[in-house]
Design a protein around this nucleic acid. Structure first.
Length: 382
DNA sequence: CTGGGGTCCT
DNA sequence: AGGACCC
């Protein structure tokens, strides 16, 4: 296969700069509540990092300009435009978050090219890449790099967006190799260098698919390098992680990933949430939920499907000083009084009342009404 | 007060 | 319903 991974450079910051060009060249951070969730390269050069607190960021970089990124609408809109452009190259596009996409272009690769393609962009380990693989993948990946370049050129010319691309024979390797030259560059991995790319990650946590929980389990086993993960006896790994996960992550450690590019169709859930210092009364909860419902219903309406389930998320300030999230979900019927095929419109007053009532019932399952409680986040999802 | 979203598996 | 993972 030939898989391209496209990753937009500091996505939120680019969107903000496109919407407000006067930000261009200034150190820019995108703020959500108390956090700088991402920032542009000017800010990074001055010491600002992703997920840093606003306080620390401003200490490091007093000239930092902040844009509020709590409402994701602008980013969703740009993400959709990016997706549409990529789809014009191949139907096999999988979105990961708002700013990453995998594209499978295997079917677009010329089976017997008369002209040997050249590579566009970087090659991972250029020095020892002169071998051509007997299976023909080297030339296919070269062609892939040309297509990736065309994708990135189009994102730049039509949207003004710069991006990075990785080109490789599977999703794992495409994503990893694309991150080796940033920003606004692309890198191709020829398969002979796969193991070297994996080893260059150093730590198992750097493999997508190995998160913090699995990383802790691996550390208990004394596995703290990619090479140890590769060399660990599979039965030992199965004991700790179960057969499926053990096999999967050991394969990943060798750069093997058979997962396919899963076409992203309409979302399975649509939600909105909001965090805040603290809420202690049901009146305040009801008010917050109404506000959230307005926000989420905008998205539901645009989607067009009538929700059949609603989920409430609550983050409580626990006695132990650290917060806990709980969810409650139930069926909801929003068809009464309207033909079930009628297009979804704005929430009627009856519907709003019904949803809020349902959510408050769910809320009472989460909080113990007798005891005092503090809620620091509410979320609604359909 | 470590965002505001999502997906899939158990 | 929760927990893992991703951004």
């Amino acid at each position: 296969r030939v898989i391209i991974h496209i990753d937009i450079d500091c996505f939120y910051a680019q969107v903000e700069t496109i919407l407000n060009p006067s930000l261009c060249g200034k150190p820019l951070g995108i703020k959500q509540k108390n956090i700088v969730v991402t920032c542009n390269y000017e800010a990074r050069a001055l010491g600002v990092e992703k997920l840093m607190s606003i306080k620390t960021a401003l200490e490091k970089c007093p000239s930092l300009v902040l844009a509020n990124g709590e409402d994701l609408k602008k980013y969703r809109d740009m993400s959709e435009k990016i997706y549409q452009i990529l789809q014009s190259f191949s139907p096999f596009v999988e979105k990961l978050g708002l700013d990453e996409n995998f594209i499978d272009i295997s079917h677009k690769i010329n089976k017997s090219p008369e002209i040997k393609p050249e590579v566009s962009g970087h090659i991972f380990e250029e020095k020892n890449s002169d071998e051509t693989c007997a299976c023909g993948c080297t030339d296919r990946l070269k062609e892939g790099s040309i297509i990736a370049q065309e994708m990135r050129n189009q994102l730049k010319s039509e949207l003004g967006i710069t991006s990075c691309a990785g080109i490789a024979c599977n999703k794992l390797l495409a994503k990893l190799v694309g991150a080796t030259h940033k920003p606004n560059q692309q890198t191709t991995l020829f398969s002979a260098s796969s193991l070297n790319l994996m080893k260059s990650l150093k730590h198992p946590r750097n493999i997508p698919g190995i998160g913090s929980a699995m990383n802790r389990k691996l550390e208990v086993l004394g596995i703290d390098t990619i090479e140890k993960l590769q060399a660990t006896d599979l039965f030992k790994l199965i004991e700790a992680l179960g057969v499926k996960t053990a096999n999967q992550i050991q394969q990943l450690s060798f750069g093997i990933d058979d997962s396919h590019v899963k076409i992203t169709d309409r979302p399975k859930s649509i939600g909105a949430e909001d965090g805040f210092p603290t809420i202690k009364s049901e009146t305040e909860v009801r008010k917050k939920l109404k506000c959230l419902l307005d926000r989420v219903w905008e998205l539901v309406e645009k989607d067009g499907r009538r929700p059949s389930q609603v989920k409430l998320t609550v983050r409580k300030l626990h006695a132990t000083n650290h917060s806990v999230r709980e969810t409650r979900q139930t069926a909801i019927d929003l068809t009464t009084g309207v033909p079930s095929n009628a297009p979804l419109g704005p929430l009627s007053e009856n519907q709003e009342k019904k949803v809020i009532t349902t959510l408050m019932n769910l809320f009472e399952k989460v909080v113990n009404c007798d005891e005092s409680w503090q809620v620091t986040l509410l979320g609604i999802s359909f």
